[in-house]
Computed example of a mutant assay.
Amino acid sequence: MNAALQLAIEQALQQAEHAMQERRSADAFRWLERAHILTQRQPLLHARSHWLMLALGWQIGDYREVAGQIPRIFAALLFSKIWVPIGNTGRSKISAFRPMPVPEELQKLLVNDDQNPSSR
């Protein structure tokens, strides 16, 4: 993984956790969605983004989010290297199979990582 992508993932996860601590759920979900898009091909980090979405769902009493994240955690661990719906934000309100547009700034990070031979 290239340094810029790694830094962006760390920042997104840290910002999400900070927003969760401050009970700013909308901000936390935005950061987690960003982290999810960036980590889709990395099983442990991908599962971590889903775990944090589950924890945030629990924190705000959104049990649909909690229930939807449980199978996504297992799928992230099992299928991230095989197939992912590119750009999917990872939320339970979105089909787990639906590809979505990747924001341009994230595309640049992901394209640079795909071109980095050490990321494979």
Results as ranks from 00 to 15, higher is better:
residue 64 R to D: 10
residue 61 G to L: 02
residue 16 A to Q: 10
residue 15 Q to P: 00
residue 94 I to F: 14
residue 76 A to C: 11
residue 10 E to V: 03
residue 76 A to E: 03
residue 7 L to N: 14
residue 26 A to S: 03
residue 117 P to D: 14
residue 20 M to P: 09
residue 21 Q to Y: 07
residue 86 I to D: 15
residue 94 I to D: 08
residue 53 M to V: 15
residue 12 A to P: 01
residue 8 A to K: 00
residue 107 Q to A: 01
residue 114 D to S: 08
residue 45 L to E: 08
residue 51 W to F: 12
residue 95 S to L: 15
residue 88 N to Q: 14
residue 60 I to H: 00
residue 114 D to G: 04
residue 32 L to S: 02
residue 41 R to I: 01
residue 19 A to S: 07
residue 44 L to G: 09
residue 39 T to W: 02
residue 87 G to D: 13
residue 7 L to I: 09
residue 62 D to N: 07
residue 92 S to V: 05
residue 115 Q to P: 13
residue 1 M to E: 02
residue 40 Q to A: 12
residue 82 I to R: 15
residue 64 R to S: 10
residue 12 A to Q: 11
residue 118 S to C: 04
residue 10 E to I: 01
residue 9 I to G: 06
residue 66 V to P: 01
residue 10 E to S: 11
residue 28 A to G: 05
residue 116 N to P: 05
residue 54 L to I: 02
residue 16 A to M: 06
residue 3 A to L: 08
residue 13 L to R: 03
residue 55 A to I: 10
residue 87 G to N: 07
residue 88 N to V: 14
residue 110 L to G: 00
residue 57 G to A: 06
residue 89 T to Q: 13
residue 52 L to W: 06
residue 29 F to V: 10
residue 106 L to I: 15
residue 9 I to C: 05
residue 84 V to M: 12
residue 110 L to Q: 04
residue 39 T to E: 07
residue 29 F to P: 00
residue 96 A to T: 15
residue 118 S to F: 07
residue 38 L to Y: 00
residue 120 R to E: 05
residue 40 Q to T: 13
residue 44 L to R: 09
residue 73 I to Y: 12
residue 34 R to Q: 06
residue 109 L to M: 06
residue 30 R to Y: 02
residue 40 Q to K: 05
residue 103 P to I: 09
residue 31 W to K: 07
residue 25 S to N: 02
residue 72 R to E: 01
residue 94 I to Y: 13
residue 19 A to D: 00
residue 66 V to K: 09
residue 16 A to T: 05
residue 88 N to S: 13
residue 108 K to R: 11
residue 58 W to Y: 04
residue 83 W to I: 14
residue 4 A to K: 07
residue 52 L to S: 01
residue 60 I to E: 02
residue 68 G to N: 06
residue 2 N to I: 10
residue 80 S to T: 12
residue 73 I to H: 02
residue 80 S to F: 09
residue 80 S to Y: 13
residue 90 G to R: 06
residue 14 Q to K: 06
residue 17 E to L: 09
residue 59 Q to M: 10
residue 108 K to S: 04
residue 100 M to W: 03
residue 89 T to R: 14
residue 99 P to F: 06
residue 75 A to Q: 14
residue 120 R to M: 12
residue 6 Q to L: 09
residue 115 Q to T: 09
residue 34 R to N: 07
residue 110 L to D: 05
residue 98 R to C: 15
residue 15 Q to A: 12
residue 5 L to Q: 09
residue 42 Q to R: 10
residue 4 A to Y: 02
residue 115 Q to M: 13
residue 76 A to V: 12
residue 112 N to S: 08
residue 64 R to T: 13
residue 42 Q to E: 07
residue 3 A to R: 15
residue 75 A to F: 15
residue 35 A to W: 10
residue 4 A to T: 05
residue 69 Q to H: 11
residue 47 A to F: 04
residue 88 N to M: 04
residue 79 F to M: 13
residue 57 G to I: 01
residue 16 A to I: 02
residue 93 K to I: 03
residue 111 V to H: 12
residue 117 P to E: 04
residue 15 Q to T: 14
residue 9 I to N: 00
residue 18 H to Y: 01
residue 42 Q to N: 14
residue 112 N to C: 08
